[in-house]
Design a protein around this nucleic acid. Structure first.
Lengths: 137, 137
DNA sequence: ATCATTGCAAACACTTTGCATACGC
DNA sequence: GCGTATGCAAAGTGTTTGCAATGAT
């Protein structure tokens, strides 16, 4: 995605497009890995040598607040972020630790008494072994 | 549930029924709160004054390995455990932090290419505001 | 000059590890 | 007595906080 487009998206959400924010958002969009804070940090510190993890935390929680990213809690230890905010499922491989996006063909789950709750987020997490790890068994 | 029954269940799973393990399992079964390690610790330290968190960790991961409990990752900060291992959904209230069990009326979600993966666990997590917190708005 | 943003360093909180002690057959 | 279970203390890891420095208008 072009840098101008990214800046436009950030501005539309009311986020002032600083270098750090642009780079972090760009990274999230391009990475298909649902990166952790640490992954983002390690990959961007080359480009932005003064980058701190604090800024990444600040930025991602700001993005989340503005509805630009979603936070995943599929992982036991670390928080992960996803720039896709539409409804899709996530698969975590217990062998390699990777997290994959999965698409719904149909999603018709009805839940008892859910009308009494105010729903803000849905997360479907599936854990198991991914195709690659199954092969090398 | 009677203590004898608990001991029987533990033995059937190949877990030697020590006092700590019985109490922790009993607590999990009776609590509807999907407690964190800390909640278990605080509530049982009165009964078992020498109890340590290490033992609670050991015990719960042993239980998990034996299929007696499931681990929830709905929470950002803490791991929670649930003695119900059948498929049901979990709701986390972002106001009060409580976690509720929700029952499926129907669950027909089909996911693209899932046949390439080996599925071990499903988790449906919903976040929002619970009925009680909605009232006091 | 003022306000927002960044980022270092310290503090925190939860979890894991190492190892010595205690328990049970 | 020997293997298992327990639990203290220390270390480890991810996250949050306080605050000073920087940057933008």
């Amino acid at each position: 995605m072009k840098k101008e487009k990214l800046i436009k998206i950030l501005k539309e959400k009311g986020i002032s497009p600083t270098l750090q924010r642009i780079k972090i958002y760009e990274y999230l969009l391009e990475s298909k890995e649902h990166p952790t804070i640490d992954m983002i940090y390690k990959d961007l510190i080359g480009e932005i040598p003064t980058l701190s993890k604090t800024t990444i935390y600040n930025t991602l929680y700001l993005f989340k607040e503005k509805g630009l990213v979603q936070e995943l809690t599929i992982d036991e230890n670390e928080i992960r972020f996803d720039a896709r905010t539409d409804l899709h499922a996530h698969f975590k491989c217990i062998k390699c630790g990777k997290i994959f996006d999965l698409e719904f063909i149909s999603k018709d789950f009805r839940i008892k008494n859910l009308e009494n709750y105010k729903v803000l987020e849905y997360h479907l997490y599936i854990k198991g072994i991914c195709p690659d790890c199954l092969k090398s068994y």
